[in-house]
Simulated assay, not measured.
Amino acid sequence: MKLSDWGEIELINVIKQILIDSGAQGALPDVITGIGDDASILHQPPGDILITTDQAIENVHFLIDRIPAFNLGWRTMAINISDIAAMAGTPKYAVIALSCPPETPIDWIADLYRGIGAICHEAGVAIVGGDVSKSTQHTIAVTMIGESIESGGQKQQTLQRNTGQVGDKILVTGTLGGAAAGRSLLFDEEEVDLGSDLIQLFLNPPSRVDAAHLLIESGIRTGMDISDGLLIDTERLTQASDLSARIFVEQVPLNPKIKHHFPHTGMDLALNGGEDYELLFTARSDLISIIETKINCPVTVVGELINKTEKRILLIGANDQELEISNMGWTHF
C-alpha cells in the first residue's frame, strides 16, 4: 500500500498510534497537548530551554535503498539528541516534519516511525507534534527541545563553545573515524553487511547525554559534539573562544577497526570524516583525572588551546612538527 492510497489524516493517525505504542508520544507529565492540535502545549518550570533543529534529505544525507527505514528514523533522532547532549542538556520533546513522494510505501513510513519511537522511548523524549507533506524526495526535519541541568545547587549549567581558556587541554570521548568509515562502506560498497561494527557506528551514533552531564558536574563548561570532523569542529570552538588550537595527530584515538578497510586513509577519516557524535571539550589539566574517574566512556587528550595565531588549527605530528592541513571536514557548500 502506498501513501497516496491513504491520505494525510489516516497517515497522521497511524503515526500517532505507532508513537503511542512505543511510549514516545505525550509520555511526559508536562505534555498538556501533543499530536493532533494546532500546536503543542508544554508545562515548563523556570530554567534554560535548549532548541535545535536538523534535517535528513534523501541523496544528501542518506540513500533510501541503503539505509533501512527503522535505522534512518533512529539515526535522525540520535543526531538531534546529540546536539542537546553537546550542550549538556536533557532532551525532552521533539516535533518532526516528514516530506514524502505519494508512492512511498506505508510500511516504510511505519518502520521509520518505529525507529524514531524506539530511540525516543530510550532517551525519554516525547514526540509532541509535526507535519507531513508531499514532495519529490524524502526529507525528515526534526526540531528538538531540551532543558539545562542543575549542578552544585545552581541551575542552567550548559556546555558552550565560547568559554575556552588558553592552556586548556582539548579532549574527546570514545574513538574517532569509525562512523565515517561505516558511511563509506554503506554507500560505496556493492555488498553491505548492516551488522558490521563500523556501519553500526554510522547507523546508531553513541548517546553522550550522561557523559555531558558528568562533565558539567566535574566543572567543565566548554564543549560541543563532533559532527563534521575533529579539525573543523575544533576550529568552530576556537573561533567562538577567539583562540587557536594545537591538535596532536599521534594522540587522536583512531577506531582500531578502520585499518582493515582503510589502511591508508584511516587518520583522515578520524580528523575529517565526521559523523562521530562524540563530545569535544576542553578542561584544565587538574580536572582531567576527576573527569576520568567519573565519566562512563573513554576520554583522550588530543590537543590544547593557545593564544590566537594566524592559523586557528595547528596540526602537530611527530617531533612537534607542524603538518599541512589539506582537508577540514564536511561542509554543505
Results as ranks from 00 to 15, higher is better:
residue 2 K to Y: 13
residue 2 K to A: 03
residue 3 L to Y: 13
residue 12 I to L: 11
residue 18 I to M: 00
residue 19 L to Q: 04
residue 19 L to D: 02
residue 20 I to H: 08
residue 31 V to P: 00
residue 32 I to E: 15
residue 33 T to N: 12
residue 33 T to K: 10
residue 34 G to K: 03
residue 34 G to Y: 08
residue 35 I to G: 04
residue 39 A to L: 08
residue 43 H to V: 12
residue 43 H to I: 09
residue 43 H to M: 13
residue 44 Q to Y: 05
residue 45 P to R: 14
residue 48 D to G: 11
residue 50 L to K: 02
residue 51 I to T: 06
residue 51 I to G: 01
residue 52 T to Q: 12
residue 55 Q to P: 13
residue 58 E to N: 03
residue 60 V to D: 07
residue 63 L to E: 01
residue 65 D to V: 00
residue 70 F to K: 12
residue 75 R to M: 14
residue 79 I to A: 15
residue 82 S to P: 08
residue 82 S to K: 05
residue 82 S to E: 09
residue 93 Y to D: 02
residue 111 D to G: 04
residue 112 L to D: 01
residue 113 Y to C: 03
residue 114 R to M: 14
residue 115 G to T: 06
residue 117 G to K: 02
residue 119 I to T: 10
residue 119 I to Y: 13
residue 128 V to M: 08
residue 132 V to H: 12
residue 132 V to C: 13
residue 133 S to P: 04
residue 135 S to F: 06
residue 138 H to F: 11
residue 139 T to L: 13
residue 141 A to N: 14
residue 145 I to N: 06
residue 149 I to V: 14
residue 150 E to W: 10
residue 156 Q to T: 14
residue 157 Q to Y: 04
residue 160 Q to S: 13
residue 166 V to M: 05
residue 171 L to C: 14
residue 171 L to F: 06
residue 174 G to E: 08
residue 178 G to A: 07
residue 179 A to Q: 05
residue 184 S to H: 12
residue 185 L to T: 10
residue 185 L to V: 11
residue 188 D to F: 05
residue 190 E to W: 03
residue 192 V to Y: 00
residue 196 S to F: 09
residue 196 S to G: 14
residue 198 L to M: 09
residue 202 F to A: 00
residue 203 L to Y: 11
residue 207 S to N: 15
residue 207 S to W: 12
residue 208 R to G: 02
residue 209 V to K: 07
residue 212 A to S: 15
residue 213 H to L: 04
residue 215 L to D: 08
residue 220 I to V: 15
residue 223 G to P: 02
residue 226 I to W: 04
residue 234 T to I: 05
residue 234 T to P: 05
residue 235 E to K: 14
residue 239 Q to E: 13
residue 240 A to W: 03
residue 243 L to S: 00
residue 244 S to C: 06
residue 245 A to P: 00
residue 254 L to W: 05
residue 260 H to T: 14
residue 265 T to S: 15
residue 266 G to N: 03
residue 266 G to A: 08
residue 268 D to C: 10
residue 271 L to I: 05
residue 273 G to L: 02
residue 273 G to N: 03
residue 278 E to W: 09
residue 280 L to V: 10
residue 281 F to L: 03
residue 282 T to K: 01
residue 283 A to F: 00
residue 283 A to T: 01
residue 284 R to D: 12
residue 284 R to V: 07
residue 288 I to T: 05
residue 290 I to W: 05
residue 290 I to Y: 10
residue 297 C to Y: 05
residue 298 P to C: 06
residue 298 P to D: 09
residue 298 P to I: 06
residue 306 I to A: 07
residue 308 K to F: 05
residue 308 K to S: 08
residue 311 K to S: 15
residue 311 K to Y: 13
residue 312 R to C: 03
residue 313 I to P: 07
residue 321 Q to K: 15
residue 322 E to Q: 14
residue 324 E to W: 12
residue 324 E to R: 15
residue 327 N to P: 04
residue 328 M to L: 13
residue 329 G to A: 08
residue 329 G to Y: 07
residue 332 H to Q: 13
residue 333 F to G: 07
residue 333 F to C: 01
